[in-house]
Structure formats: structure tokens, C-alpha cells
């Protein structure tokens, strides 16, 4: 319930109109949205119980490692009931398979639609979505870790909170099923990072400073 309260309201995309190239416009719009979401995500992370108690080095490591996974939980969640099998990055930024392909995001599209379908089949509750998002960050396998015991405790707290929630719903296998969806999330995030780095390096798509800094940390 604490995580639900601190969950930021969804952002709207600011549609780019600096170019006539439709695909480039889509990418620029998406990158601007991601940069703003990233800013919110960092503020959000600080409100997860236990996060601010970690060393600054570990806070940085977890975010540098897990930011894309944490952001994509929301995208997959919003995309799950999209009739046209779109990726719903924002209410006013919905990309279908063809648009993703044209923008160089075909592989990301496949992985995220797979994840969205999985979330839909599991009928995730909002509580489970925010728990997954926090766990993606806590479980980001940053290496090296400055204080492994503190990071472990942070993970254990979140795991306990999720288990407590599921046992109140008498769903014995639910926690395990949620955790088993994390590898697909990591795969999707890996594809997203590769796609945006490729767009930046090979197609010279300009990126905002924070987004570039976080992508570079993953490179």
C-alpha cells in the first residue's frame, strides 16, 4: 500500500514536431518521455522503504542496473489490454508492431508484448505491479555491491511484503509465479537498452543527458 501511494501518475508524451521523418519523430517523442520517466523513477526509488538506507554507491548501482526493467513493468502493464497489440508507452503514445519496426524497436516490441500477455494472463493487481517494479530494482544484480548485506535485507523486505500480500489473498503460488516473470522483464530491458544505444550511436538520435548517462552505464 505504501508503494501504491508513491507510484507517480502516468506521464503524457510531448509529441516531437522537429522533423518530417515520422519514425524519427516517434523515437524522439519516446526518448523525451523516457527521460522524464527516469527522473520520476529516481524520485520514486528514494521512497521505497529501505532504499534510502542503502549506501549512495549502492543506490546508484541498483538504479543504473535496474532502471529500464522498472520502467518497462509499467509499459507492459499498460499494454496488456491494448486491442491492437500496441505498446502503450503513454496514453497518447501507443505504438503498434509496424511503428515499432520502423523505429528500430522490433525486438523490443516482441519481448514487451510477450511480457504484456503474461501479465494479462496472470491478472496482476496494482499491488503486484508496484511490488514487481520495486523488486526489479532491488534484484538488478548490480556488480559489485558496496554493502551486500544491506542490499540483501532490502530484497528480503520486499519479498516479505509481497508474500504477506499474497498470503492475505490466499494465493499460495502467486509469489513464485510473479518472480518467474522477472527473466522475461530483464530480457525486454536488455533489448530496449540495446535498441536505444543503437539509435544513438548508429542513427545519431540525440538523447537527453540523463537518459544517455543511464544508457551509458548499461553499455
Amino acid at each position: 500500500s505504501h508503494l501504491l501511494l508513491t507510484e507517480p501518475a502516468p506521464l503524457e508524451a510531448n509529441h516531437d514536431d522537429s522533423t518530417d521523418d515520422g519514425s524519427l519523430r516517434t523515437v524522439l517523442t519516446l526518448c523525451d518521455l523516457l527521460n522524464r520517466e527516469l527522473l520520476l523513477l529516481i524520485g520514486w526509488a528514494k521512497q521505497i522503504p529501505g532504499f534510502s538506507g542503502l549506501s549512495l554507491v549502492d543506490q546508484m548501482s541498483l538504479l543504473q542496473s535496474g532502471w529500464m526493467e522498472a520502467l518497462l513493468v509499467g509499459v507492459a502493464w499498460r499494454s496488456q489490454s491494448s486491442a491492437g497489440e500496441e505498446l502503450v508507452f503513454a496514453d497518447n503514445l501507443r505504438l503498434d508492431a509496424a511503428q515499432c519496426r520502423a523505429a528500430g524497436l522490433a525486438e523490443l516490441y516482441e519481448a514487451l508484448r510477450h511480457l504484456a500477455a503474461k501479465y494479462q494472463a496472470m491478472k496482476l493487481s496494482p499491488e503486484e505491479v508496484v511490488a514487481l517494479k520495486a523488486m526489479a530494482l532491488a534484484n538488478s544484480d548490480a556488480d559489485p555491491v558496496d554493502c551486500p548485506d544491506s542490499v540483501q535485507r532490502f530484497q528480503d523486505w520486499l519479498h516479505e511484503a509481497l508474500q504477506e500480500y499474497e498470503s492475505s489473498r490466499r494465493e499460495q503460488h502467486r509469489t513464485g509465479r510473479l518472480l518467474m516473470s522477472l527473466p522475461l522483464l530483464r530480457q525486454a530491458a536488455g533489448r530496449a537498452v540495446q535498441a536505444f544505444l543503437r539509435l544513438h550511436r548508429h542513427s545519431s538520435v540525440p538523447l537527453h543527458k540523463l537518459l544517455l548517462e543511464m544508457l551509458d552505464a548499461k553499455a
Binding site: I42, G43, Q47, L63, L210, E213, D216, A217
Partner: peptide, 15 residues
């Protein structure tokens, strides 16, 4: 840390 200046600053700012 120099390389990750923005993240570092954002984390150090109070919430």
C-alpha cells in the same frame, strides 16, 4: 562518479 553526475546529484537532493 564523475561519469554519473546527474544520477549522483539527483540522489543527493532531498526528496
Amino acid at each position: 562518479k564523475e561519469k554519473h553526475k546527474i544520477l549522483h546529484q539527483l540522489l543527493q537532493n532531498s526528496t
